[in-house]
Design a binder for these strands. Structure first.
Lengths: 137, 137
DNA sequence: AAAGTTCATGCAACCGGATTGCAAACTTAG
DNA sequence: CTAAGTTTGCAATCCGGTTGCATGAACTTT
């Protein structure tokens, strides 16, 4: 729904340009995280830098979050409804070593860690690697 | 101790060349993980590619492990005595956002995750970001 | 509606870490 | 000593990320 897309952008204070609508559309249809390169392939003709900046804008406005899964290229996925990207909002990510897809395990919060004395915590990145259900078939 | 260094290399089936001795020496004296660039700075005159390949050899022979802490450059640290780099051997890493140092929290094993059905686990990368005790002072 | 301001887009170019190819130097076995 | 294998050093490349700059679209002010 076009309206939904626009609303979502508006609600995050992002001006709904054509490009942004399209990118959000793609991200919405996606059930795994996507990197810049693969996002580019989803379009016939789109400038990588524009997509790059679109993703950055989305990230800055907490519409999406970045995932560093160790594959070399940063991936992005939509944030959950009420996510503020604070430690308590963070979930575990899963990278399939066969298909290279990265899943948001939204139901699995990042476990609490008891840090050594006088280390303070800001955020956590937890990536589990293995084989996903699709590739196990 | 020169002998210790050599023994350690031998025990991992790594031929103890001069370069490798020196690199292992540096890694041993280090209490935080180090990346290629910083390793290079530890030497007056050393080729980056040689260091790169030395690190790779060390990693392949499980003398050191790689840490992807999201800073853009891969860091390395010595493995524990009996580490096989299997999931049960893995520990949490801590990246200080002030000094950019990365610590191996060897005492903190990576928590067990209950993956969704039919996802299988191979390894886990868990990096906690925050401020270390040194920088809190 | 014209002029001015702000923001988004597209293109070219650059940067920095990782990696490869290749030849010279070194090591080891025969 | 020589041949085979390994390590080292240098140059060059690759690739994702990022910046600069000029054009263009949208929105404001008069």
């Amino acid at each position: 729904m076009k309206k939904d897309i626009d609303n979502k952008l508006q609600s995050k204070n992002i001006k709904p340009t054509a490009m942004r609508q399209l990118v959000l559309q793609v991200l919405t249809e996606q059930n795994t995280a996507i990197n810049l390169h693969d996002l580019e392939l989803k379009f016939d003709r789109a400038d990588k830098v524009t997509l790059y900046r679109t993703l950055r804008t989305f990230e800055e406005n907490q519409l999406i979050h970045r995932i560093d899964d160790g594959t070399g290229a940063v991936k992005y996925a939509l944030c959950q409804e009420k996510c503020n990207c604070h430690p308590e909002d963070l979930h575990v990510h899963f990278l399939c070593t066969k298909c290279n897809q990265t899943y948001c395990l939204n139901d699995i919060p990042v476990p609490t860690i008891n840090l050594p004395n006088s280390f303070s915590l800001e955020s956590v990145n937890m990536v589990v690697k293995g084989v996903c259900s699709n590739c196990k078939l």
